[in-house]
Structure formats: structure tokens, C-alpha cells
Amino acid sequence: MEYESSQLGLTKGIYFSRLIMDPNHVRRVANMLMAFDFERGTITRQTTGENSTDVTVTLPSGKNLFHANVHTSGEFPFALTEGSCFESADEALAMYNDIAYGFVSSADAQSMHILQIAEPHPNYEAWPLLHLEVNRDSIIIPTELADAEVQLEPSYYVGQLPRYWRWLKTERVESKSPASAPK
């Protein structure tokens, strides 16, 4: 997404429309102290073979919200997934490399919370995004996208690294009407 931030100008990042965490005390503390509103859910990662993992996100009702079997590989593919909207694997990688912010909207959509990946700033030469092979037949996608025509795009993983995350100042969302536009 792009957001016209009063602190940062036009900024590219990920908007989180839904967040889920295991039902433990960390979720409750995070919900109290951070802008996030984590739903209850169970996230499991089960090794199914060499470099192969089953990832499952289950809601308290028992419904599987998401599932995928993924395979990590050190090799970056030069070919795209069939039907991709990108023209090359390098072009896709460049787009995802450039993301350093996350956005969380307040419940009334009047304020925007901004999470900065502060340190290390995305430095994908030192810690590159690596190719993540996703087993297309294994995917269960979230309800929000269930009736859409969904195309799998190049996916990635990163390994162990420290991340310093910083909440920037919460911004009041500006109205786009001329009468209230900033001067």
C-alpha cells in the first residue's frame, strides 16, 4: 500500500487488516500496550521433511484460517509462478525488498499507527529475502479472499536476524475534502 504520512510523506508499507496470536499472556499484554489488536488463534509450524514445513493458523472455533506447505531453498528462481502479475522474478523481489513500514488503522479509521522496521533497516544485501517455494495444492486461504480469484506470487523467507521495531507517532488521518485539507 501507499499512505500519505504527515511524518514521512508518501510511504510504502504493509497494511495489517487482521492479526492473530496464540492465546497466551503475550497477546493480552500486546493488546494493552500496542496499537495491534491480536485475535486469538493457534499458529503451528510442523516440519514435514528436509526444509519443508506445514504452517497452519486455526481459529478458536477449530476452523483452519490458513494453511500452506512451504519449502525453503537457498536458490533464487529466475522463473515466475505461472500467471504472475510481475514481469520478472527480479522485479517482484525489488518490490518486496522496498518495504520498511507497517500500518495499523484505529478502529474508527480516524488515526493511523505506523510501525517502522528501524534496525536493521531492511538491508537485503546483508540479510536477503530468500525464495520460499509454496505448494500450491496445499493452500487454504483466509475467508476474506475465499471467493476471489487468487494467484500465487513469488514468496520469500528470511532467517535469523535481530529486528528493532519502533512505533512512530500516531497520525490523525487527514480528510480529503478541500475544506479541511492541510494548509
Binding site: S105, V150, S155, Y157, P162
Partner: peptide, 25 residues
Amino acid sequence: DLDHLFIINFSVEATRLQRLLPGHL
């Protein structure tokens, strides 16, 4: 400290995703 991070990406018709977003994004 990230043990690891998976980023699984898709594409969908833009109009289908728009309704999940606040209008200022």
C-alpha cells in the same frame, strides 16, 4: 530476534481487496 519470517504473496483483482482497506490507503 526473528527466528524466521515467511512472506507468502498473492495477487487478486484490486477491487476485491479495496473493501478491506481504510479509504486513506
